[in-house]
């Protein structure tokens, strides 16, 4: 089976630099997918990317980060994609379509 979601589990597209992150919670607040979690009011803990395979690659977190601590890293299957576009265009068997007249 084509497992779209699970296949990316290993790839975390939201890279957070612990040295420049100031633990401010903005990335957590702007993420439209509820995938970044940062404990509020805690100056120690880093934001956690809890559901990396649910990332839209929108970059809201990267754009809002006050110290540019976040970098969006695209996985190989997006950068150098080898999918045959024909596989996205539907499965039609010869018998599925009545022969046209003429």
């Amino acid at each position: 089976m084509d497992s779209q979601g699970g296949a990316l589990a290993a790839h975390n597209p939201i890279q957070i630099d612990p040295n420049s992150c100031i633990r401010c919670t903005l990335c957590d607040w702007v993420c439209p997918g509820d995938i970044i979690y940062k404990e509020e009011g805690d100056r120690e803990t880093l934001p956690v990317v809890a559901f990396p395979d649910e990332c839209w690659y929108c970059g809201h977190c990267e754009s809002v980060c006050p110290t540019d601590a976040i970098t969006i890293v695209f996985p190989e299957r997006m950068l150098n994609n080898t999918t045959d576009v024909l596989t996205l265009l539907g499965t039609i068997e010869p018998g599925d379509v009545p022969a046209m007249e003429g």
């Binding site: 839209w56 929108c58 299957r77 997006m78 996205l88």
Partner: peptide, 17 residues
């Protein structure tokens, strides 16, 4: 709703949420 080239469900043109 359907597949795309990357095969990643949340890699979508419009908002996947």
């Amino acid at each position: 709703l359907s597949k795309n080239a990357s095969g990643l469900a949340f890699d979508s043109w419009h908002c996947p949420y």
